[in-house]
Nucleic acid binder design. Structure first.
Lengths: 346, 346
DNA sequence: CTGTTAGCGCGTTCAA
DNA sequence: TTGAACGCGCTAACAG
């Protein structure tokens, strides 16, 4: 289709310069055994003829594509958009390209994605698992074939491959400590479903922070929600009905925090004066609501950069699967905003 | 690198079945001239040997790659993440893949992106121009070479190629009409920099709506801002100081609207009771602020889908550049939320 | 219905 | 320092 325009090849250049394709190829790739004169000649003509090397032919010959296959649940989710941003920037610096495939949280699509990457002969697959993924065969298949695989964010411990995640535990710890530092003493936690690993981890971080500070652990201060705005609202109402309500709330993520804030506003309770609030994830809206929402940033761009770097580091060292799989754990970053700042110094 | 595992080829399959590679190829591609028996035989063995067709070889032979090259300013911007989402979904349905390149708003990177796509021999380029792009040579080059090019959102009229944009004019018109429909009569507009086409268009839509309704055009009700939260705040203050302040504000986009809302809150003016507000762009935060922000949705996912479809439609019809370039103009969709709803029926 | 032949464009032996 | 020859894996034209 639509292939009327003739594309210049090294053969064309060779013919015009009375050389062989091999020499032209070498000259273009800056091979040491080619005279400076010839190189100049070839490169000048290549420019003049608008020569563009055919990567397909080159890939076929070389056996690899310089393409990173990125498998994500959805590009529409901000988190993954940022990760793509990070990956693509590092890829570009290494003269690699990025192929995108969305699983749309469907295991079947995920398998299809792996297959597409296999067929495209990508140099590496960077993946974040779909929520509903139960079987990991398609990923072990990649490994079996020697295709480098790096996991990020939604990882699996069963798969023994390099990965990068954010330290949820530490994020929860820091968030809780921060509230105490602001003078709060009865810190509540609106938790998520405990079968989801990250939500469970955040609860642990919350508990351990209290323990580290010698604060009592009051189980009435922990309520379990559904990780939605509405659920955050309900959970907050529940906390307000306590005989001794909290003076601060650490919400498992920002939407929950938002719901909690709405409940407080409706009840005429001041934030952070009466009750301080902190969320988790640094969603885009947090900066714009009133009061602005303190939260824990998950370093999404860096996550993408690190994932890509993991591949390049291994590739530089030689083979990918002969080194033990490195697990990069990113430190989350506290974002101090008005919903939790009671003192002047954050 | 890391290529120890042997990959099955059609030749391997052919040898094992005492056939020729051509027959195997045809069987796998479901060629009509192959017996059902042979097809079954081949396909069974392909499965058994975990055969994955080599797309590189196929592309080299066929002369095209079934890859869409997507050039965007940044994957971190929500808008473009959604567009990618739309593009990838349509691409996948057609058994195409999506290659991503970010210009990071830099013309030099943009050129580099086009070059990468040229070398990768993508089947089509879908692009949204970088803000600072002045020269269009790299794009005309694509056209010159017969590589299909579809522009979306940030398009250029100089380039005579298919494109898809959202109807900003109509969005502004609808937004203004909506405010009037809610009983407002003195509608103000916080405008953007008029050298930016979309901002200028929105102003026109605003003017024309007033004219259509026979409302007076009061130039003191139009203030020009910088399209930031702070600027929105200042512009709103300016409007409040008028001898006859407005009873509604159409802001050129959501961040401006947000700033305006903050100014109103600080002044103790009720939204929408005293002054109704509507923004533009349907940014993620609008749903979550109080009151929730009415706005104009730009149909980002559909924009991606339509852009991809534009290519597939042309490709199906034959050659890309022999048909006049179609300009798809998407109808924006009004999102009615609390910042503008004074009546029960939206 | 299947086999034979050839070539897509490139990079890499081996030879000179 | 350059050339000749070959093959990566696949598909399409031509034969039979």
């Amino acid at each position: 289709m639509t292939e009327s325009i003739h594309k210049t090849t090294i053969t064309d250049l060779a013919r015009e310069l009375q050389l062989t394709p091999s020499t032209v190829s070498r000259a273009l790739n800056n091979h040491p055994a080619i005279s400076a004169h010839t190189k100049q000649l070839v490169q000048a003509l290549a420019l003049k003829r608008h020569y563009q090397p055919n990567r397909i032919a080159s890939s076929l010959r070389l056996g690899h594509t310089r393409i990173l296959g990125v498998l994500i649940p959805s590009a529409e989710i901000n988190f993954f958009g940022s990760v793509i941003h990070g990956i693509e920037n590092v890829a570009r610096q290494n003269d690699y390209s990025v192929l995108i495939f969305q699983s749309n949280e469907d295991e079947h699509f995920e398998q299809q994605g792996v297959q597409t990457f296999l067929r495209s002969r990508v140099s590496c697959v960077l993946a974040s698992l779909a929520k509903e993924t139960t079987h990991l065969r398609h990923f072990t298949e990649l490994k079996r074939r020697g295709v480098p695989l790096v996991l990020f964010d939604r990882v699996s411990d069963e798969l023994d491959v390099p990965s990068v995640v954010v330290n949820d535990y530490q994020g929860a710890l820091l968030a809780t400590l921060h509230l105490v530092q602001q003078g709060c003493r009865r810190i509540a936690h609106i938790a998520g479903q405990q079968h989801v690993p990250i939500f469970h981890t955040r609860l642990q971080g919350y508990y351990d922070a209290l323990q580290q500070l010698g604060l009592p652990q009051d189980d009435t201060l922990v309520v379990y929600g559904q990780v939605t705005i509405e659920s955050g609202y309900q959970c907050m109402r529940q906390l307000l009905e306590l005989p001794e309500p909290p003076d601060a709330v650490f919400a498992v993520e920002d939407f929950t925090a938002l719901g909690a804030m709405e409940a407080l506003k409706d009840a005429g309770i001041s934030i952070p004066g009466d009750i301080a609030i902190i969320g988790f994830a640094n969603e885009a809206f947090g900066k714009y609501i009133t009061p602005s929402l303190s939260t824990v940033d998950q370093q999404t761009i860096r996550m993408g950069e690190e994932a890509a770097r993991l591949y390049f580091d291994y590739a530089a060292k030689g083979s990918f699967y002969e080194t033990p799989a490195q697990k990069v754990v990113l430190d989350p970053v506290l974002i101090y905003r008005n919903s939790s700042l009671r003192l002047d110094s954050g």
